Amino acid sequence: MEVYIIQFQNYLQQSGYGLSTQRMLPACVREFLEYGGFKSIVEISPGIIVLFYEWLHIRPLKYRSGALSGIMISHYVYALKVFFSWQESSDGLQYNPMSGLKFRRHASGRREALSVEVVEALFTAAISMREKVMLHLFYSCGLRRSEAEMLNVRDVQVRHRLLYVRSGKGASRRVIPLTGKVAGELGVYLEEYRKSGAVEKGAFMLNREGRRMSGSSYNRLLKGLVGRAGLWQGISLHYLRHSIATHLLQGGMSLEYVRDFLGHRHLEATQIYAKVGAHQLAVI
């Protein structure tokens, strides 16, 4: 069965998973295969997977006392999902034994995405061009707070409908395509609103004093907009980034495209930010 583990590791590497995931997922699958003592993966049934899942709740830790945490058990479930989905897609199995199985979701406290209706309510309530641009930067373009802070005029190419992120997380760079509407409104901001009172000529987004917008300034701007829209006060800038990722995936965008759009290095980072369907390797 070791050949399956090696092939699985190669698949994870080629698919862009992070190094820690390339180590952890095969280790989880190896433990499952050793638990069942299978001679071939075609012997694996949904029933034995359920037994393994139940056993994980009483399995002792290897190096200290205690049992596995809920989130670690979720990692095992995720590993098996990815493994069997890969086997099915590569014709290693005709039937995926994980299909139809549901397991308790670990309560991780992960933030939920905003609904499309809530996002539309925010855009409707935006009365200033600064508010509209803020929504475009964090929702339409999916920027991080630090990326919006560092954005410069030269980074927004309205004519070519492109936005350049030159100071992404981990010193990464990416190019974000703009829709016609977004490019148009960013262009209006540049031509009609930004020029007046600008103190810092290079910065794209300016505060009322004509200086580069800080993260705290963006937060205050959003809080005022949320309050005027009569929405939940817990909505933050990152909710907007999270939400566009979820909405793109729900609209049929591939996980790889959304990963590049958000500037993530690895696929699992994108899955944390967005709810995806089972066919996109999410844990049920």
Rank of each mutant, 00 (worst) to 15 (best):
residue 2 E to G: 13
residue 4 Y to T: 02
residue 6 I to L: 14
residue 7 Q to D: 15
residue 8 F to P: 05
residue 9 Q to Y: 08
residue 11 Y to L: 10
residue 12 L to H: 11
residue 13 Q to R: 15
residue 19 L to A: 15
residue 19 L to I: 15
residue 21 T to W: 08
residue 24 M to I: 10
residue 28 C to M: 12
residue 28 C to A: 15
residue 29 V to N: 14
residue 37 G to T: 03
residue 38 F to R: 04
residue 38 F to Q: 07
residue 39 K to Q: 15
residue 40 S to E: 13
residue 41 I to H: 12
residue 43 E to A: 11
residue 44 I to S: 06
residue 45 S to D: 03
residue 45 S to P: 00
residue 47 G to M: 04
residue 48 I to D: 06
residue 50 V to N: 07
residue 57 H to C: 02
residue 58 I to V: 09
residue 59 R to Y: 06
residue 62 K to T: 04
residue 63 Y to S: 11
residue 65 S to E: 12
residue 65 S to R: 14
residue 66 G to N: 08
residue 68 L to N: 14
residue 68 L to G: 06
residue 71 I to D: 06
residue 72 M to P: 00
residue 77 V to Y: 07
residue 77 V to W: 03
residue 80 L to T: 02
residue 81 K to F: 01
residue 82 V to M: 14
residue 83 F to W: 12
residue 84 F to L: 09
residue 88 E to G: 00
residue 89 S to V: 05
residue 94 Q to I: 03
residue 97 P to H: 07
residue 98 M to G: 09
residue 99 S to L: 07
residue 101 L to T: 05
residue 101 L to D: 13
residue 102 K to R: 09
residue 103 F to M: 07
residue 104 R to K: 12
residue 105 R to G: 03
residue 105 R to P: 01
residue 106 H to E: 06
residue 107 A to F: 09
residue 107 A to C: 01
residue 107 A to D: 14
residue 108 S to Y: 05
residue 116 V to Y: 11
residue 116 V to N: 02
residue 121 A to Q: 15
residue 124 T to C: 05
residue 124 T to G: 00
residue 124 T to M: 11
residue 125 A to T: 05
residue 128 S to E: 09
residue 130 R to A: 07
residue 131 E to R: 06
residue 132 K to R: 13
residue 133 V to H: 01
residue 135 L to N: 01
residue 136 H to G: 03
residue 137 L to E: 01
residue 137 L to M: 09
residue 137 L to F: 03
residue 139 Y to V: 01
residue 140 S to M: 01
residue 142 G to R: 02
residue 142 G to T: 04
residue 142 G to H: 04
residue 143 L to P: 03
residue 144 R to C: 01
residue 147 E to Y: 02
residue 151 L to R: 01
residue 151 L to N: 01
residue 156 V to A: 07
residue 156 V to E: 08
residue 161 R to T: 02
residue 163 L to A: 11
residue 164 Y to L: 13
residue 167 S to A: 11
residue 167 S to K: 12
residue 168 G to S: 02
residue 169 K to C: 01
residue 170 G to P: 02
residue 172 S to F: 06
residue 175 V to N: 05
residue 179 T to V: 04
residue 180 G to F: 13
residue 181 K to R: 12
residue 184 G to W: 12
residue 187 G to Y: 11
residue 188 V to D: 09
residue 189 Y to S: 03
residue 192 E to D: 10
residue 198 A to Q: 12
residue 203 A to F: 10
residue 204 F to R: 00
residue 204 F to I: 06
residue 206 L to F: 10
residue 207 N to T: 08
residue 211 R to G: 02
residue 216 S to E: 10
residue 217 S to D: 10
residue 219 N to T: 11
residue 221 L to I: 00
residue 222 L to Q: 01
residue 222 L to S: 01
residue 225 L to V: 06
residue 226 V to G: 04
residue 228 R to V: 03
residue 232 W to D: 14
residue 234 G to M: 06
residue 236 S to Y: 05
residue 239 Y to I: 00
residue 239 Y to V: 00
residue 240 L to Q: 07
residue 240 L to G: 03
residue 244 I to Y: 02
residue 246 T to M: 08
residue 247 H to G: 08
residue 254 S to N: 07
residue 258 V to Y: 04
residue 260 D to F: 04
residue 260 D to N: 10
residue 260 D to H: 08
residue 262 L to D: 04
residue 263 G to R: 04
residue 264 H to G: 12
residue 266 H to A: 15
residue 267 L to S: 05
residue 267 L to A: 09
residue 267 L to D: 07
residue 273 Y to S: 13
residue 273 Y to H: 10
residue 274 A to D: 15
residue 277 G to M: 08
residue 284 I to P: 10
